[in-house]
Design a binder for these strands. Structure first.
Length: 217
DNA sequence: CTCCCGATAT
DNA sequence: ATATCAGGAG
């Protein structure tokens, strides 16, 4: 049961889902990663790859005290930084990427975080998902973040049949009204962590009910 | 497609 | 033991 932009029932079902999400979770652009500025959000988002945001917030609490400027990350001893972020997993890559991203930002961007997708993804460790988090959260640019929850649940809801995150992003751009692009990720993460679990979705207690074609599966 | 990788829940 | 977690790069 795939979404069809020319089908009134599809549009109605989409609107019902968006309305239910808005009423349940609100329309505020909340962020689950603790940060005080754009750079800290970038670091936290790099760390969040294949790691819970809860764990990231534990790590960054001390990390952002020890490295309180971009310059300190740029000059960090890589072995020390690896230990500081080890609990996030993939720590060799992440430590190197965070340090090199800081260096590149200071050299090429005067220490400012760019808003352009190409410029953001040119930074080491920053892919499309991380770049869109920054664009949406820091610059308020309509952008769809396709993470593991959006990938899984957008498929369940019949909003995409794709598996490639970029194709999913383009499908969702057609399905979702632009004022819900940023909200979609926030709402779907909240839903995915509380009801629509990856392992064992709690369909019986899901407020989307029959709006979801995958109910009970 | 594979590798990177620790912490937690089931 | 295994699946999963705000993915990215080679």
């Amino acid at each position: 049961m795939l979404f069809d932009v020319n089908d009134k029932k599809s549009l109605k079902r989409r609107d019902n889902i968006l309305k239910a999400l808005d009423e349940k979770y609100g329309k505020e652009y909340i962020c689950y990663l603790n940060h005080k500025n754009a750079w800290e959000l970038l670091v936290a988002t790099i760390l969040s790859a294949q790691c819970t945001d809860k764990r990231v917030n534990i790590i960054t609490k001390d990390l952002f005290k020890k490295y309180d400027t971009m310059e300190k990350f740029a000059g960090a001893d890589i072995s020390d930084l690896e230990i500081d972020i080890k609990q996030a997993g993939f720590y060799h890559n992440k430590a190197k990427n965070i340090k090199n991203a800081a260096i590149m930002l200071l050299e090429k961007y005067n220490g400012e975080i760019p808003s352009d997708l190409k410029e953001l993804t040119s930074l080491p460790g920053v892919g499309r998902k991380t770049a869109n988090v920054i664009r949406g959260n820091i610059f308020n640019e309509p952008s769809i973040v396709v993470d593991t929850h959006v990938k899984r649940i957008s498929g369940k809801l019949g909003f995409t049949g794709e598996k490639d995150p970029v194709k999913i992003e383009y499908d969702l751009m057609k399905v979702l009204p632009k004022d819900h692009w940023i909200l979609w990720n926030i709402h779907i993460i909240t839903l995915g962590r509380s009801i629509c679990f990856a392992r064992n979705p709690d369909c019986d207690n899901c407020f989307l009910g029959n709006f979801c074609p995958s109910k009970g599966k």
